[in-house]
């Protein structure tokens, strides 16, 4: 009598055999107490393997994950703001430096005249705009300092977010 091997018995229980093989093994099992016993052992083991893993996640697990993800995406919003800020900061610094070394006043005056014509055409109440470009240039240093302060605030903010989101502390 040729006994089916362990693999065949397992496949028999998994129900992954071809119909012909299945019939042959069923027939053999009918005549062989030893193989029947082995099959029974596998069957008991299968039952055990289907038992749930005893350890469970804490009941608030899902809410905790959602909170972590929310914090993370808030963090990414901050990062985006940070990027926008950095780009505009460098553009402003570049313009400021350029203004220091080149005389843009004639060009700006031309620009002012154009704008004046344009705005006067639309609304006379926009008188105040006259000369605003030059004022803007004069106040540049003030604006840059303000931007620097803003940058510092953002930087601290980012450092804070970083430490809050480092895996060791956020996963607790």
């Amino acid at each position: 009598m040729i006994h089916p091997n362990d693999q065949n018995l397992q496949s028999y229980l998994d129900d992954t055999l071809l119909p012909q093989q299945k019939r042959e093994i069923a027939k053999h099992l009918g005549q062989c107490p030893s193989c029947r016993q082995t099959l029974q052992i596998y069957r008991s083991m299968y039952q055990q393997l289907q038992e749930e893993i005893p350890d469970q996640l804490s009941p608030r697990f899902s809410s905790r994950v959602v909170r972590a993800v929310k914090n993370d995406s808030l963090g990414s919003v901050h990062m985006n703001l940070w990027h926008i800020f950095m780009v505009s900061f460098f553009v402003i610094v570049a313009i400021n430096t350029a203004l220091k070394y080149y005389d843009f006043v004639p060009m700006l005056t031309d620009l002012k005249t154009d704008f004046q014509g344009y705005f006067y055409g639309i609304n006379n109440s926009l008188h105040d705009l006259d000369g605003s470009f030059l004022v803007f240039v004069q106040d540049f240093k003030l604006i840059v300092s303000a931007v620097l302060v803003l940058g510092l605030i953002f930087f601290i903010d980012i450092l804070f977010l970083r430490s809050k989101h480092n895996p060791a502390s956020s996963l607790r």
Binding site: D6, Q37, Q40, M45
Partner: peptide
């Protein structure tokens, strides 16, 4: 699965496993 079965048979008698 064969390993687990062999382990069980080392530890228990056949009849006990059914």
């Amino acid at each position: 699965r064969q390993y687990l079965k062999d382990r069980l048979l080392q530890r228990f008698k056949k009849e006990e496993l059914i």
